[in-house]
């Protein structure tokens, strides 16, 4: 596909040769060819493994054993996908990935709501209201954003156990929210900092209420940054393994943990087609969200027109 683009670009260059000389000359320099070659290689670097994963997941085990990993499947079958979703064993339970999928969803929703709402209000307060020690607080948040999870893992386990949420879905969601707070708060704070001071002053003179201004004025202006944060946070939470495997209980593990258990089987043969299908199933949800929300994102940019 990328190669197709290259030839198309070349064809385009030929077409405009007649009317735009300067442009044609620029289009043919060695530098731009080098860029195209480099980009093509980058694309191949990701596309080739993806191609192998995709085709392998659609093959039968017999075909895979023939060892031609680049060949297209002779018989196309979704058998492996069905098996991965419904029947594959993860540990001692053999109910497929769907268990992990729903666990992940049940982790995702509360952690999104918790982290985004908290970070939003904190960012709003820090950016637009006079908060005592706001500078110190921001600096601490900034420091916290650089603390890796591994360092605070043990105390966090003790804390969640004391709170009684260790090994539950809520536990995983809470840890995700807490871990996301510093970065999300900084993002919201920086976004709200750019809201013109006069709008805030007008709102203070009109209403003066912290929550009324937030709900009626600030929240409707936050569309773009919400989308950005949503994409960031959904990708983070969904692709997480460490928090899930540490804080999730036996039956409350997210999809990634489920997948890992399924793939690292120690008995019998490795069923590559099922593994590949399971990996793809796990990777799809953030992609779907990304494309869906990304569309709104573009719509938001064109319709927004915040600046007066």
């Amino acid at each position: 596909m990328t190669q197709l683009d290259v030839t198309e670009a070349a064809a385009g260059a030929t077409v405009i040769r007649g009317r735009a000389r300067a442009r044609r000359r620029r289009g043919l320099t060695g530098r731009s060819i080098a860029v195209l070659v480099f980009l093509t290689m980058c694309a191949l670097f990701f596309c080739v493994p993806l191609y192998v994963v995709l085709t392998t997941s659609l093959k039968t085990m017999e075909e895979i054993r023939q060892g031609q990993i680049f060949a297209l499947p002779e018989t196309w079958t979704f058998e492996a996908w069905n098996f991965a979703w419904n029947e594959a064993c993860s540990g001692i339970t053999c109910e497929g990935l769907k268990v992990g999928f729903w666990n992940s969803v049940r982790i995702l929703v509360p952690s999104l709501i918790l982290s985004i709402s908290l970070a939003m209000v904190t960012g709003y307060a820090l950016a637009l209201w006079e908060v005592r020690w706001a500078g110190t607080f921001l600096f601490l948040l900034f420091l916290c954003a650089f603390v890796p999870l591994q360092i605070i893992m043990f105390p966090l386990i003790a804390i969640t156990r004391t709170m009684g949420v260790y090994g539950t879905i809520m536990g995983v969601a809470v840890v995700h929210s807490v871990m996301a707070m510093p970065v999300l708060t900084l993002i919201f704070r920086n976004f709200y900092k750019d809201i013109p001071r006069e709008i805030m002053n007008a709102a203070i003179m009109d209403s003066g209420s912290f929550w009324k201004i937030f709900v009626e004025i600030i929240l409707p202006m936050s569309g773009n940054i919400l989308i950005v944060v949503l994409i960031l946070q959904i990708t983070n939470v969904w692709n997480d393994y460490l928090v899930g495997v540490t804080f999730g209980g036996f039956n409350t593990q997210p999809m990634t943990v489920n997948l890992a258990n399924m793939v690292t089987v120690s008995t019998g043969t490795a069923t590559y087609n099922v593994d590949m299908a399971a990996a793809l199933l796990t990777a799809i949800p953030p992609l779907v969200i990304y494309f869906m929300v990304g569309k709104f994102f573009v719509a938001g940019i064109t319709a927004g027109a915040i600046k007066g």
Partner: peptide
Amino acid sequence: MVFQSYALYPTKSVRGNLKFGLSA
């Protein structure tokens, strides 16, 4: 108060802007 940059609420209609002025 009337501000230099007008400071209208960008997501509200003109009516909404006038109404919010009365919210207190």
